[in-house]
Design a protein around this nucleic acid. Structure first.
Lengths: 221, 221
DNA sequence: ACAAAAGTGTTATGGTTACACCCATGG
DNA sequence: CCATGGGTGTAACCATAACACTTTTGT
């Protein structure tokens, strides 16, 4: 009545913004299979300590990437006999979104942020497919949510937020006036009273997310 | 280096339309746990015969529901120590969408189509949450895709299609003229030449999906 | 005063909504 | 020739996009 159980892992597509371009965090593996190669951070589910898959993903992020709080959502589950040389396996894939500096600060020498359009030709397992799914999810969700804001520090200007939306969506130019009006109408960001970012020119008002978790719109950005 | 592996199952939220209302197919379980109770069709992954989780879902649908072709997509994966009395488990949940008569024809005595708003107070495992996720996915995707058409037989009238969208979206009344124009503009359905459905009144043109798989729109229905 | 970026207002456009109207059929 | 649902046309409305304009700061 019992059956052979698949190997069960979690893998995290940790996306960030590097020089205005989407990048994924790859970590050098320190054990077989694919020892020494760059891959998504991941690991076995530990049934003795993880309450569920989400908890396993959080644990992996903390251990492998030194990250404590990031936007995290389940992506999809990848499975099959062939994807892992150790045998029939399941990978619950998660999408994480976080500012680049937080990855770099805590990641050390093992991490590399790789431009989404310059991925290595070969990646271990089916990590290429998983990354593609993560990027697609981020792009898709960005059209109608505040998800891109998680690529920025807590406080940001409207111009910065617009740049992030442009980078994520791959759009050349969102009209600044329109973007401004829309994002303010949606009431998803609020000004940080009295705080501005002063450059050489007129200082910009700093904003933060009104809801610190993700907010969905009923129209497109 | 090896860890205890979670129990791995697939469960299918099989949604359909019964008297213009969304319903889910529940099957009476014939083994513990929850022997004799109604639950989602599901089963263990068989690593020796299933190529991946999708294949396992298709096998389960064929064995438990006698269904061969339905719209099927992965929903999400539910997991944890508590959801199954047998121990730490993973359920890869799939969403199936199919006309009611196909379920009833092949399901026999063990199947019951239950109105989404009249679910039993208690369902085994976390099947209530899984159903909610399935319904949410269907509703959500219906706004911008032909997914509701999979609730109808292959050929249907525009009025029928409109009714299905209304039932799924829970909208009182989609303007018929607007619906008609939009669905035709989108070029996702095509007339079946010379075929009409004649009632007492002017016969309606029959249509079918232009693309037999799901089509996504760039605007809302 | 000027350059540059922040921020506001105004108009044109195109999709959506609402509704009035015509068409085809059986009785 | 009437009742009924199928099917078409049109006008008001509203969100969006494009762009001109004003404001604020540092030098």
């Amino acid at each position: 009545m019992d059956f052979d159980r698949p190997i069960t892992t979690v893998d995290i597509v940790l996306l960030t913004l590097l020089e205005q371009r989407l990048a994924v965090a790859l970590y050098r593996r320190d054990r077989p299979p694919f020892d020494g190669e760059e891959a998504l951070p991941g690991g076995f589910v530990h049934v003795d300590e993880d309450a569920d898959l989400g908890a396993a993903a959080i644990r992996v992020l903390r251990i492998k990437a030194g990250l404590d709080f990031t936007y995290l959502e389940q992506l999809s589950t990848f499975s099959g006999r062939e994807r892992d040389p150790r045998g029939w396996s399941i990978s619950a894939a998660y999408l994480g979104v976080v500012p680049a500096d937080r990855i770099l600060r805590s990641g050390g020498r093992d991490v590399r942020l790789v431009d989404i359009d310059r991925l290595p030709a070969q990646l271990p397992f089916d990590h290429r497919r998983i990354i593609d799914a993560g990027v697609a999810r981020l792009r898709n969700k960005s059209v109608y949510s505040t998800l891109p804001a998680f690529l920025l520090p807590e406080e940001f200007t409207i111009a910065e937020l617009r740049q992030v939306y442009q980078a994520v969506l791959g759009v050349a130019r969102l009209d600044l006036a329109g973007f401004r009006k829309k994002i303010l109408d949606l009431r998803v960001i609020e000004p940080v009273e009295g705080k501005t970012r002063g450059g050489v020119h007129r200082p910009a008002q700093l904003y933060r997310l009104a809801d610190p978790s993700i907010a969905l719109f009923d129209r497109r950005i």
